[in-house]
């Protein structure tokens, strides 16, 4: 099990997040480091908040939480519970912490395909579904903070070949290009 901490490096101060230990898991692989750095962790630009995604050992539950990095206080934003196996993306997590616009981009296969959804960061309420249709949003590879537009590589299923198309889409699901 891992006990999450935030270290203030100038003061060498360790803040232990106020929550029980988490399984040694992430939503991308059976480890907390998959192909990049510490997986399922995103910082706010000012370093005052950190978002993270504890995942159950059997990958059936994931809980998106945000911690105050000074006090260690933690609050839950949203959770995903599935009967099979929750993976938030290929190679890297597919959710994005957007404190500047008070939003979260979330990945779910709840409509049978992997899609991106936009949530309110404060209330945890679903605002709208960002991507739709047949094909999985494989990665939320970029977004603009001001307009909160995401770019996803949507893989569309074909009989013979799998085509991966790059699309840019507004987070209100309008403006698909």
């Amino acid at each position: 099990m891992i006990e999450r901490v935030v270290i203030d490096v100038d003061r060498a101060r360790v803040v232990r997040l106020q929550m029980p230990p988490d399984p040694h898991r992430s939503s991308v692989c059976d480890d907390v480091e998959c192909s990049g750095p510490f997986e399922d962790v995103e910082w706010s630009a000012d370093g005052r908040q950190v978002a993270f995604l504890p995942t159950s050992r059997d990958h059936k539950e994931a809980h998106l939480r945000v911690a105050d990095t000074d006090s260690g206080r933690v609050r839950q934003v949203l959770e995903e519970k599935v009967a099979t196996y929750y993976e938030s993306g290929n190679d890297a997590h597919n959710w994005r912490f957007l404190p500047a616009s008070n939003e979260v981009i979330w990945f779910s296969e709840r409509d049978n395909w992997g899609q991106l959804y936009l949530y309110d960061l404060q209330t945890g309420r679903l605002k709208n579904q960002i991507t739709t249709g047949e094909g999985t949003s494989r990665s939320c590879s970029g977004w603009m903070r001001r307009t909160v537009s995401s770019t996803s590589a949507a893989s569309a299923r074909r009989r013979v070949a799998i085509r991966i198309s790059f699309i840019s889409i507004g987070s209100d699901s309008m403006g698909r290009t």
Binding site: M1, E3, D8, D30, E33, F38, V41, D46, G47, V50
Partner: peptide, 29 residues
């Protein structure tokens, strides 16, 4: 620690804050 499993190393697992003032990591029991 990066030591749980056959993939392991002596490098720390952590994520720096954007302003390089803080580190998000863990203590593994």
């Amino acid at each position: 620690t990066d030591n749980a499993g056959w993939i392991h190393s002596d490098s720390p697992i952590l994520l720096w804050s954007p302003d390089s003032k803080k580190i998000a990591t863990f203590q593994m029991d």
